[in-house]
């Protein structure tokens, strides 16, 4: 199946939501240094708004993923999630003044290259299918 461009857009949106969700989940879970299952902890988790927001955003991300999968192959769409590493590197450089070392920039570049290769690979499938089925 040829991958539709709306599905790619949806996965990119999904990646952004999931990445944001992970930041909130990390913030939320850091409020609980020890995972002891006491009533107090369980109540704390329920009232821990970053955690709840994180779970909520993660859930919406999953729903968008399901819809996106209607428009293409998993082997093409799922790796686009790796673009989250690009967002995290760039956003943490911007907001938390994290240094963007040469190694990090090179890593981001290679991830982008990897996603491009997968896109290229999916085009090759379509080309073969086109030849086989006139």
């Amino acid at each position: 199946m040829a991958t539709k461009s709306w599905a790619i857009g949806l996965i990119l949106l999904c990646t952004l939501l999931t990445t944001t969700a992970q930041i909130f989940l990390k913030l939320g879970i850091d409020n609980f240094p020890q995972l002891i299952f006491q009533l107090q902890t369980i109540l704390g988790i329920i009232l821990d708004w970053p955690l709840i927001l994180g779970i909520f955003l993660y859930g919406i991300g999953a729903v968008l993923m399901i819809i996106a999968f209607k428009g293409g192959d998993v082997t093409v769409l799922y790796p686009i999630f790796a673009s989250s590493y690009i967002w995290v590197s760039l956003l943490s450089a911007y907001f938390f003044a994290d240094t963007l070392s040469l190694m990090k920039i090179a890593g981001v570049f290679i991830v982008i290259l990897g996603i491009s290769f997968i896109a290229l690979g999916s085009k090759k499938h379509s080309a073969i299918e086109y030849v086989e089925a006139p």
């Binding site: 990090k104 890593g107 990897g114 290769f117 690979g121």
Partner: peptide, 17 residues
């Protein structure tokens, strides 16, 4: 081959990051 190379590059790039 292209897709597998892409997957390997992603893992490589993420490791560098």
């Amino acid at each position: 081959l292209y897709k597998w190379l892409g997957v390997i590059m992603i893992i490589f790039g993420v490791s560098m990051i």
